[in-house]
Write a protein that binds this DNA or RNA. Structure first.
Lengths: 225, 225
DNA sequence: AGCACCCTGACAAAAGGCTGACAGCCCTCG
DNA sequence: CGAGGGCTGTCAGCCTTTTGTCAGGGTGCT
């Protein structure tokens, strides 16, 4: 799942990126306000982490512009000056959460994950679909209690589709979620990935909607009979 | 597991650090309030020991500021004046425990360990996984009742992983928990450490989730059959 | 049939993780 | 004080797994 990190300080950006990556996010970074605005308006991120002190265009302005343009991307604001007025301003500008610097990485992680879950309406750490169980703590998928080994990329694919269960997800969207933005778009890597997953899980779980994308049914629908 | 010790007196700090280190904690020290506040807000400690009489920013204020910022780090307060009002103040400021000076080192140890266990939602001082028993009181690991010698660092690794049983722990997180903040992040020391532990305990206990991190299963799952 | 899509097996590059060897450090013991 | 031994981080080499690419073959719709 792609995250946008807007942060001008290299040091901070690196640390934050590392921890977010470690828990499975694909992090892309903007260094200044203009870049941030453009990326956020263009690319489909699941959430953005927005530092307020930025060159070229202030963080709050970026946020306001996004909101003005109807962009509903969940935004977590980071701010060095943790004062009261700024927090209010942030919330008013349309932020979803606010974290004063300095912060602990765990807290950032927790909040980002909360944000993403809230946005996805998916609070469960274990996603179930028929005989399949995706355990996000163990980062493990099992069928009928038997663990099935998935590579990181395969895991991300299944995880994303299960989080979006019941919705058709286009190849384009998957490419965007699984790969960095500068990735060659005209390769069939998603197809290959889906193929590999199917070989492991059987053809039933991930359905193809020819011309539209891929789909994992919601648990109820698939077992209604 | 990293602990923050906030204490201005060198003598006391040294003694306390020595005993905590001896039972497997990695202790980092702050000498005054500002430093304490910053470290506690920035680094991922499992708990803090907070002396109240401090230069530059009073201990209670530090605590209040942490709490105001949503920092839930477990805190044990140390105080020279063991009077009633101060104790109440401490608890009200958000402390988790309170220990009047002078205290016996054993008592401090016991309380800190209790604090950490409570915070981890792990009431048991003895963690069991299959034939392995980790006794956090004696800091010993045994298999089938036979003690296995672990070096301090090895013990910390196993201990952390067992406390997080059932969860994949990334190398990054392990590095943060096992090494002090200024540690070179791009070495393979964690891998080496894991290797050493496995040589002593066998390959079964610590699983590798390639691309994700390491994992010790919960006892139940591993012996369900 | 024709076309756009999708699947699959093979391959090679790259990443991730493991291991043995080694060196620095510290402690203990004689 | 010096020798020996344990602990630990670093490094280089090795092996395995992962993953993007490509070419060729299906599949379903019009």
């Amino acid at each position: 799942m792609r995250l946008l990190l807007v942060e001008d300080d290299d040091q901070v950006a690196e640390t934050v990126t590392a921890s977010l990556t470690a828990v499975g996010f694909l992090v892309e970074r903007a260094r200044d306000g203009r870049e941030a605005w453009f990326m956020g308006d263009t690319e489909p991120y699941v959430a953005a982490i927005l530092d307020l002190g930025l060159p070229s265009l202030d963080g709050l302005s970026v946020l306001r512009q996004w909101r003005a343009a109807g962009q509903r991307l969940p935004v977590l604001i980071l701010s060095a000056r943790g004062d009261w007025t700024e927090r209010v301003e942030g919330i008013e500008a349309g932020a979803d959460d606010y974290l004063p610097k300095p912060f602990r990485l765990e807290e950032l992680l927790a909040r980002v994950q909360a944000l993403v879950r809230r946005a996805a309406g998916q609070p469960a750490p274990v996603l179930v679909h028929g005989p399949f169980r995706l355990d996000t703590r163990r980062q493990t998928l099992s069928r009928d209690g038997l663990a099935i080994h998935l590579s990181p990329q395969e895991y991300r694919l299944v995880s994303y589709l299960m989080q979006q269960a019941g919705r058709v997800v286009s190849q384009q969207e998957l490419t965007e979620q699984l790969y960095a933005q500068d990735f060659e778009r005209d390769s069939n890597s998603v197809e290959v990935l889906v193929g590999r997953v199917r070989r492991k899980l059987g053809a039933g779980l991930i359905q193809t909607r020819r011309g539209f994308g891929y789909l994992i049914e919601t648990d109820d629908d698939s077992h209604a009979s």
